[in-house]
């Protein structure tokens, strides 16, 4: 084998490697989508963050606008302090609402921002005061059962069959809304 041929092959080999890495970056990974350039930091306190993890997306109207950078426990207030990196291209009013949502029934958790009406925008280091905790499945079920129990106390005349029927209705009518209140 000529030396020059070897050089050529090794050159092709390494070039292929870089091409594959580029392919992984562009086509497979989220380098392009997650390339949030400049960000500003805001914090939000939650009583319960459920399964939220660092690097979870922050979405508004379903669009990713930032990522969770850090989650710490505040031993004074007994709350979780979540830091959010938000893209400087997006500005949110001061009274923006932060919720912890779950993608699908069992999917990953993310933070949803709902813009308020304030004229002053959030800036670096600000704190979002209005938050809503993650939905914990066990809590949800126990509350549902509790509400069923009080319901059947209110209407003692109902039969067992209709009681299960109304149970199905209650499930259909999105229990999430009920707990929010």
């Amino acid at each position: 084998m000529e030396r020059t041929t070897i050089d050529l092959w090794v050159g092709i080999f390494v070039a292929l490697g870089f091409a594959a890495l580029l392919g992984l970056a562009m086509k497979v990974g989220n380098l392009t989508t997650s390339s949030i350039g400049q960000t500003y930091l805001v914090t939000a306190n939650f009583e319960n963050i459920g399964g939220l993890k660092p690097r979870a997306p922050v979405k508004s109207a379903g669009v990713v606008v930032g990522r969770v950078s850090e989650i710490v426990f505040d031993p004074k207030t007994y709350e979780a302090v979540v830091s959010l990196n938000i893209d400087t291209r997006y500005n949110f009013p001061k009274d923006t609402f932060a919720n912890i949502y779950t993608a699908g029934l069992l999917g990953e958790q993310y933070i949803g921002l709902e813009a308020g009406g304030d004229e002053v925008n959030l800036k670096n280091g600000d704190k979002i005061s209005q938050t809503q905790d993650a939905v914990v499945l066990e809590k949800l079920i126990s509350q549902f059962l509790y509400s069923k129990a009080t319901e059947s106390d209110d209407k003692p005349g109902k039969t067992a069959a209709t009681s299960t029927e109304s149970g199905v209705d209650a499930l259909d009518a999105s229990p999430l809304d009920k707990i929010g209140k």
Partner: peptide, 11 residues
């Protein structure tokens, strides 16, 4: 794939 594969953490 793109939404869930992270450049730094995974690749």
């Amino acid at each position: 794939m793109q939404a869930n594969v992270d450049w730094e953490y995974d690749i």
